[in-house]
Amino acid sequence: METLNLFIKSIFIDNMVFSFFFGMCSYIAVSKNVKTAMGLGLAVIFVMLTTVPLNYLLNEYVLKAGALQWISPAFAEVDLSFLSFILFIAVIASFVQLVEMVVEKFSPSLYNQLGIFLPLIAVNCAIMGGSLFMQQRNFPDVGQAVVYGLGSGIGWWLAIIIMAAIREKLTYSNIPNALKGPGIAFIVTGLLGMAFMIFSGIQL
């Protein structure tokens, strides 16, 4: 039950985009049509689902204060948590490289559409943010980390799909010139965020 609660919470209440602004850069830039948004969203879900648990294990067995105790009791005092930024980003960057190679091999058209934004998943704050929040929240076991990674990934995917669908319609509307493009995208995201605030307080 608690796991299900965490899952729902990470999708709707603690939504990556609407409540933490994670991954805004690619969110605004790639949400111009639904197909590309779908591709990027799925890639983010996959990378989140794999990197959050990996980083959880890394944190649990290498970085945390006293985490190296399993090697020898002499290491009980060692606290490597200041290294976590650099190791987390290394795990993420290598995974993104992997996803990039897979996408290039199986779907060249999607690869061309995503262009520069595929390598930029590595610097998508949503993914790094997921790992850092995982570290901060101290999940009791790796299962929770998997659920959190999956939920946050789905939350991001959901947000970018909604946004892309709205922006496809927006091209037909009469917007002041200066507001076209990113301006209106921000305002729409803000309104969506207000809509998502309704979910806060849901408990399963």
């Binding site: 609407f18 933490f20 602004f21 995208a185 921000f186 305002i187 803000g190 965020g193």
Partner: peptide
């Protein structure tokens, strides 16, 4: 103080700058 308003403020600042 809530996140959505920050987004709207940025949107408006972009609007002003682009005009």
């Amino acid at each position: 103080l809530f996140p959505p308003m920050a987004l709207i403020i940025v949107g408006v600042i972009i609007w002003v700058q682009r005009s």
